[in-house]
Simulated scan of single mutants.
Amino acid sequence: MGAIDCGTNSIRLLIADLPEESAGSSAPLVDVSRRMEIVRLGQGVDRTGRLAPEAIERTRVALADYAAEIEKAGVDRVRMCATSASRDASNAADFRAMVERTLGVPPEVVTGDEEARLSFTGAVRGLPADAEPPYLVVDIGGGSTEFVVGTRTDGVRGAISVDIGCVRMTERHLHGDPPSPAEIAAAEADIAAAVDRALAAVPGREAATLVGLAGSVTTVVALAEGLKEYDPGRIHHARVPYERVVSVTDYLLGATREQRLAEPVMHPGRADVIGAGALVLRIIMERAGMPSVVASEHDILDGIAWSLAQPGR
């Protein structure tokens, strides 16, 4: 099966097989290929309300490469989900037409609620035994952040998507290199208001464990762990205390883009927006009263793949 997640900042591919039935319901997918390209589809959407032609073209190039790999692997089922940027854009029809021409299947422009539920499904399978339920799963994307509360046994209790992604917050507030204290304060106020609204809606303050997803979280965790290279095996299910998240966030917001790029764990396409992503994580932990965050390398992409195993897919 082939799953594609197209967000505001990146487009990702997972080609996977289902685990053997004897492995149990909590067994992970069997990865054949995982890939990620930073295409910044949401470039300028918060300001213009439209997808930029050059952003659509960057996405087309990456998607054509994925389509070739899917065909070579003999994948029989493909699902592509497009999220925040393609929900918000007035010219989203241009994007959908490009995808159908390139991939051969139309993208599903999922709602924020569906995005949150897919993220939850991908994240909670295989969580370590010391991750106490209920879980608050947060997926910090480029255009939005999804909040989901639930357990493995009872499923989702509440889900909401709010527009505080790392690209959106950078474009809206963090213009300096590094950003000024006034810019950071404006971003903090914007993020805190959205986080409080989300935590009340799900309700997030009743959760026992915070699980963080996507590149902003995993990059912060890699920096907090002092990794010399990006190592998904060491990042997946690492638990990082609040104090270290604060320290990394302060460093990222005080560093120049050149200094952030020099970090060995930093993807070049993330260096200009990672400060905002870290700030979103820090404020979520503050407002939810969470002493630590458990990082997960499994997220909405895995949720999309698992959805293909459901009857009718």
Rank of each mutant, 00 (worst) to 15 (best):
residue 165 G to E: 03
residue 223 L to F: 10
residue 205 R to D: 11
residue 186 A to M: 12
residue 173 H to W: 10
residue 166 C to S: 15
residue 182 A to W: 08
residue 189 A to W: 02
residue 202 V to C: 11
residue 207 A to N: 08
residue 178 P to G: 11
residue 160 I to V: 15
residue 160 I to Y: 04
residue 183 E to H: 03
residue 218 T to M: 14
residue 157 R to F: 14
residue 203 P to S: 09
residue 213 L to P: 03
residue 202 V to H: 09
residue 174 L to N: 04
residue 167 V to T: 10
residue 195 V to S: 04
residue 179 P to T: 15
residue 202 V to Y: 08
residue 181 P to K: 13
residue 163 D to I: 03
residue 162 V to G: 03
residue 166 C to F: 00
residue 204 G to E: 07
residue 175 H to V: 09
residue 186 A to L: 13
residue 163 D to V: 01
residue 161 S to P: 08
residue 208 A to G: 12
residue 210 L to K: 06
residue 165 G to W: 03
residue 198 A to C: 09
residue 217 V to D: 00
residue 196 D to V: 11
residue 170 T to A: 08
residue 193 A to G: 03
residue 187 A to Q: 05
residue 220 V to I: 07
residue 208 A to N: 14
residue 172 R to P: 11
residue 187 A to W: 05
residue 208 A to L: 13
residue 180 S to H: 02
residue 209 T to E: 02
residue 180 S to T: 15
residue 218 T to N: 13
residue 221 V to K: 03
residue 157 R to K: 12
residue 182 A to P: 04
residue 187 A to R: 04
residue 198 A to F: 06
residue 160 I to C: 02
residue 183 E to L: 06
residue 173 H to I: 00
residue 161 S to A: 14
residue 220 V to Y: 00
residue 221 V to Y: 07
residue 174 L to P: 00
residue 198 A to I: 08
residue 186 A to P: 03
residue 204 G to H: 06
residue 222 A to P: 00
residue 211 V to R: 00
residue 208 A to F: 04
residue 192 A to V: 14
residue 159 A to P: 05
residue 217 V to R: 00
residue 202 V to W: 13
residue 218 T to I: 07
residue 222 A to W: 01
residue 212 G to Y: 01
residue 181 P to W: 04
residue 182 A to K: 11
residue 174 L to S: 05
